[in-house]
Amino acid sequence: MSTYTATKLIPMLESHDMLATLKFYTEILKFTCDVKLDDLSWLTLRKDEIEIMFCSPNEHRNIPKSIMSGSLYINTNEVAALWENLKDHCEVCYPLEDFDYGMREFGIYDNNGYLLQFGQNL
């Protein structure tokens, strides 16, 4: 196998409510919508260096609700201020906390139930 260069990872997540997803990410998390299809079946959201794509469920996969076994971990330089801005507007998984592995972080769920973790080096 020849070698190749991977240049970027962009998560593509399914949403059963694309309008709510667009509102959550743009109004609460302050992402911008770079591109979206007119029928809102696909969109790309961006915040600084972070990019996430969302699509309507694929009829071939037939998954009844959005699922992901892991999380999206977002590094930030202002985790405490971000926590203060988000804690009353999101479902909290765990509050702002300092961890032995050198991170201050918290976790919230987006409107789809995906876990978003925000962290900053101590």
Rank of each mutant, 00 (worst) to 15 (best):
N77K: 08
C90L: 07
F99R: 13
T76Y: 00
F31N: 05
M12L: 14
E78K: 11
I74S: 05
I108D: 00
S71E: 15
I63G: 03
A81L: 05
L96C: 05
L86W: 07
D34R: 14
N58A: 10
F24A: 03
A20L: 14
T21V: 10
H60K: 14
E59C: 06
V79R: 01
A80H: 12
V35Y: 04
R46Q: 14
D98A: 10
D88F: 08
H16I: 11
P64W: 13
N111Y: 07
Q117L: 04
L45N: 04
I74T: 02
R104N: 11
L122R: 08
F24K: 05
L29H: 07
T26I: 11
R61E: 15
I50N: 05
Y114R: 01
D88K: 12
S56T: 13
E97Q: 05
S56F: 09
S56A: 15
T76H: 11
I52T: 13
L45R: 07
E49I: 14
T7N: 11
E78R: 08
K23N: 15
L13G: 01
I67S: 12
S2H: 15
T21D: 11
C93R: 09
I63D: 13
E84T: 11
L40F: 04
E51L: 03
N77P: 07
N77M: 04
S15H: 05
K8R: 04
S71V: 09
L72A: 03
E105Y: 00
I50T: 10
N85G: 13
Y25N: 09
F118D: 00
L96I: 03
T44S: 10
L96G: 01
K30P: 02
I52K: 06
F99A: 14
L22G: 04
C93N: 08
T32R: 05
Y94R: 08
F106I: 00
E59H: 09
D98H: 09
S56K: 12
I67L: 02
S41I: 03
R46K: 12
M53I: 09
G113Y: 07
S15N: 13
V79K: 00
T26V: 03
K36Q: 11
Y73H: 11
Y4F: 15
F24T: 06
N75Y: 14
D48H: 10
F24V: 02
C90V: 05
T7L: 13
E78Q: 15
Y25M: 05
M53Y: 06
Q120P: 02
L72D: 00
L115P: 02
P11A: 06
M18Y: 04
L115M: 11
L115C: 10
L29Q: 00
I50C: 09
